[in-house]
Nucleic acid binder design. Structure first.
Lengths: 236, 236
DNA sequence: ATTGATATTATGTATATACATAATAGGTCA
DNA sequence: TGACCTATTATGTATATACATAATATCAAT
């Protein structure tokens, strides 16, 4: 198996080559692949370059490396799914729908114990409660129930959220550094069913997200999709 | 416990320091952080070492880098969730339950068009259909409906699957290099409700997975959880 | 045979150096 | 003013070299 040699060998090319050999089964899972020195010789490059290629493959979980033993193809490729959660507008437009948005409620409330737990707040403070609906070509697509920590994001008080939805506003105004996502299924209660224009007790797919920045909770949101039509797919 | 301090600066330490400053808000999202040379001077190390630290932070999505402009803290930390899908036995045991397993059906069938699409098979061939139930302390936890490509995994024909569940057997016998996951919600039909010991039309949380190795489909499986109790959580 | 010390080996990291490349800034000329 | 060129700058990559470290292999001592 002869390899084309560019003027300068690129760790990218080596990485791609090796990954291809793994995906094609040229090196089977569990098999030990040649050492860095050996690969470096094949490509006529330095060991450090091969090291980087293999290290990144190890970071992605394709190979496992142990000193002295060498590098082997991973036995069980990650049974982890990486799920992108796009902006609902983009998601709808990507599917060919026309996005529209309806603000149902915007109300400032004081933190009850219940909200404090939901938002993971240390101390009491004002909170903005927003409920809204996202539609695809006029058909309800996602119902959003959101709480915003006004101590942390006071500017939300002055935003009407009539021309921009809370998610896009927050992305613009208040970035976060950490997030927690929960995925679950449930049945539609009467109110949710009405909003989403589905039958009561139809299935719902629910995504809940809480975000933080510098240890302060920014927002907690519950996104509800009609479960008969909505799927999240992750391929890797 | 005494840890010896390495006498040279480590890219790990730099990476951790910088990440902490980001998480703590010392550098706000959108803010440009000092250049590599500058950080290298601070730590008394070479620029290449800083480069690696920053590069890995960029790979993880914490910072964005552009030549000439510099490195800035990401505005919107990845709205991507990484979901680990553990072996059901381990998941149950981690929650304090006692795992048990019930094989419901094991049947070899010829590929119908329907199965061919499901398994993404190029050509017709024998397929093993397995249905089984995973229980936590005697309570149904997950219903599994699986198809295995016998052309690719002929050994499955001779395995009874009485003492080991299909997932664990496959992990051991037939590694894969690629997987696709789908998450959705649905209502329990009569049969599924009976198996999971829930009411008909109760909500279900459904994970579907298809796996490949070297362009051959290995298996397609549908994992069904009672939606009233099951949640998938991802924190990052 | 078991234990323990020692050598070997493959990967892991740090550094200086050199050059590549993308993006920007500044300047020239029409 | 705008089109175009050039210089500058921060990051990106490649390499040789050196040493660190973990895991294994080897061999001697008991």
């Amino acid at each position: 198996m002869q390899v084309r040699k560019p003027r300068t060998s690129s760790f990218q090319a080596i990485k791609t080559d090796i990954l291809k050999k793994i995906k094609d089964g040229y090196w089977a899972p569990g098999e030990t692949i040649p050492g860095e020195e050996s690969i470096a010789a094949d490509y006529g490059c330095s060991r450090v370059t091969v090291n980087r290629a293999l290290r990144e493959l190890a970071d992605s979980g394709y190979v496992e490396r142990r000193r002295k033993s060498g590098t082997r193809v991973s036995m069980n490729m990650e049974r982890a799914a990486r799920i992108e959660i796009p902006l609902v507008r983009k998601e709808i437009e990507a599917k060919g729908g026309t996005y529209s948005y309806l603000l149902l409620e915007k109300e400032e409330v004081q933190t009850s114990d219940w909200v404090r737990v939901k938002l993971n707040l240390q101390k009491a403070g004002p909170v903005l409660h927003i409920r809204c609906l996202h539609l695809s070509s006029g058909i309800p697509y996602q119902y959003e129930d959101r709480w915003i920590n006004l101590d942390r994001v006071p500017a939300a008080r002055d935003e009407t959220f009539k021309d921009i939805n809370p998610n896009e506003w927050l992305v613009k105004e208040e970035p976060f550094s950490e997030a927690e996502h929960t995925f679950s299924a449930a049945l539609a209660d009467k109110e949710t069913a009405n909003l989403l224009e589905i039958a009561e007790n139809d299935p719902l797919f629910i995504v809940e997200r809480r975000t933080w920045q510098a240890n302060d909770t920014i927002t907690a949101v519950k996104l509800t999709f009609p479960g008969t039509t909505y799927k999240m797919i992750s391929r890797g």
